[in-house]
Simulated assay, not measured.
Amino acid sequence: MSNNRALKGISLLKSQRLAVLPIDSYDLASELSVVDRHEYGGEYDALTFGSWSCHVLANGSGAESDIAFRPHDARLTLTELGSQLPNIMTLVTEHFSLDRLQWVRIFSLRDGLMAPHVDFLEWAKAGTRLQIPLRTTEESLHSEDDIVYHLRRGEVWKIHTTAPHSASSSSRTARLSLCLDFADAEEPVAVRDDIPATEPIRIIERPEATEAELEELIASGQKMTPATMRSAFRRFAALHFERRAHAVATFDWYEEAARRTGDAGVVAKAEAFRRYCVEKRTDGEAFDW
């Protein structure tokens, strides 16, 4: 990538790298294996494709089955899984204040991706979401608007959750990212005892999509049916990580493919999925493919 384009990507990125943690000071390998074996209930299946799962270490109820994010005023309580991961929880408590911390979760992603989405649409006030990769590979990527970037192991990122964003990984090794949700989006989150960042922020260059590539993608979906719509969406979302395009363009391509089916129900479902992901959701609303 040219330096000018890399600098432009960094300057436009709303998400921020806040710090780097001395992650090698913690013995995490055995605990990450526990997460690998932990079962996931599928609460976010409408938004995820391939192998994506969510694992709760602490929340307001103490129940590890209580996965779906929501703001709360309860005291942060360890789940059974969290009690099995003392080194990961020590990483959290040694570097962050618990005063505003509401959720501690780990997101696992392997050979899969998330639909572009906007978080906190359901609530009047957004919170602050941090992500810290505990295990990752070069193939594990995040996106925001039309920028794709990589979070390195131990980097603390404040995710700009109200911009359309996504995550993808083609690796067969599960990327495990610690997700910390704090109340209040305006108040900064302090990070204690971090170490200097030695690597520049990594922006991923992607070529522009050609008209032929977009036509082939859209044409591939024109035979979609209600039964195949969900599986078909993955290919549309994947192109955003491979070609320079805004995350929301995923829905533009998908809706055009839906229109070409001539099926009003397929079109309505495609439009509803855009609304659910990036425009409007209600508290507790689930999308039914």
Results as ranks from 00 to 15, higher is better:
residue 2 S to V: 07
residue 4 N to C: 12
residue 5 R to N: 12
residue 5 R to D: 15
residue 5 R to Q: 14
residue 8 K to N: 15
residue 12 L to V: 14
residue 15 S to E: 02
residue 16 Q to P: 01
residue 18 L to N: 10
residue 19 A to M: 01
residue 19 A to V: 06
residue 21 L to S: 04
residue 23 I to F: 06
residue 31 E to H: 08
residue 34 V to R: 04
residue 37 R to M: 12
residue 43 E to R: 12
residue 45 D to Q: 10
residue 48 T to L: 02
residue 48 T to K: 01
residue 48 T to M: 12
residue 49 F to L: 07
residue 51 S to T: 09
residue 54 C to L: 06
residue 54 C to G: 01
residue 56 V to K: 01
residue 56 V to G: 01
residue 57 L to S: 08
residue 57 L to G: 01
residue 59 N to S: 05
residue 60 G to D: 14
residue 63 A to F: 05
residue 65 S to W: 03
residue 66 D to K: 05
residue 67 I to M: 11
residue 68 A to E: 15
residue 70 R to D: 15
residue 74 A to Y: 08
residue 77 T to S: 03
residue 82 G to I: 05
residue 86 P to M: 03
residue 89 M to I: 14
residue 94 E to Y: 06
residue 99 D to F: 10
residue 108 S to A: 13
residue 109 L to Y: 04
residue 110 R to P: 00
residue 116 P to T: 11
residue 118 V to A: 11
residue 119 D to N: 09
residue 127 G to A: 10
residue 127 G to F: 05
residue 130 L to W: 05
residue 131 Q to S: 15
residue 137 T to H: 05
residue 138 E to N: 13
residue 140 S to K: 06
residue 141 L to Q: 14
residue 142 H to A: 15
residue 144 E to K: 05
residue 147 I to Y: 08
residue 149 Y to H: 09
residue 150 H to G: 05
residue 152 R to G: 07
residue 153 R to A: 13
residue 155 E to L: 12
residue 156 V to Y: 00
residue 157 W to V: 11
residue 160 H to G: 15
residue 160 H to I: 08
residue 160 H to M: 09
residue 163 A to Q: 10
residue 166 S to I: 15
residue 167 A to M: 07
residue 170 S to Q: 12
residue 172 R to Q: 10
residue 175 R to L: 03
residue 176 L to D: 06
residue 179 C to K: 02
residue 180 L to R: 02
residue 180 L to S: 05
residue 181 D to S: 13
residue 181 D to M: 10
residue 182 F to E: 06
residue 183 A to G: 04
residue 183 A to L: 09
residue 186 E to I: 09
residue 187 E to P: 15
residue 187 E to Q: 12
residue 188 P to M: 01
residue 189 V to G: 04
residue 190 A to V: 12
residue 191 V to I: 13
residue 191 V to A: 09
residue 196 P to E: 00
residue 197 A to K: 12
residue 198 T to P: 09
residue 199 E to Q: 14
residue 200 P to Y: 03
residue 201 I to D: 14
residue 205 E to R: 06
residue 205 E to T: 12
residue 205 E to L: 00
residue 205 E to V: 01
residue 207 P to W: 00
residue 207 P to I: 03
residue 210 T to E: 07
residue 213 E to T: 14
residue 216 E to V: 04
residue 220 S to I: 02
residue 220 S to D: 04
residue 221 G to L: 05
residue 222 Q to I: 03
residue 225 T to S: 02
residue 225 T to G: 04
residue 231 S to I: 13
residue 232 A to F: 14
residue 234 R to H: 07
residue 237 A to S: 13
residue 238 A to L: 12
residue 239 L to Y: 09
residue 243 R to Q: 00
residue 245 A to F: 00
residue 255 E to F: 00
residue 256 E to L: 07
residue 257 A to S: 03
residue 258 A to G: 04
residue 259 R to W: 00
residue 261 T to A: 11
residue 263 D to L: 02
residue 264 A to S: 06
residue 265 G to V: 02
residue 266 V to L: 01
residue 266 V to Y: 01
residue 266 V to M: 04
residue 267 V to N: 04
residue 272 A to H: 06
residue 273 F to T: 01
residue 273 F to M: 08
residue 276 Y to M: 07
residue 277 C to F: 01
residue 277 C to A: 13
residue 278 V to D: 11
residue 280 K to Q: 10
residue 281 R to T: 14
residue 282 T to N: 10
residue 283 D to Y: 08
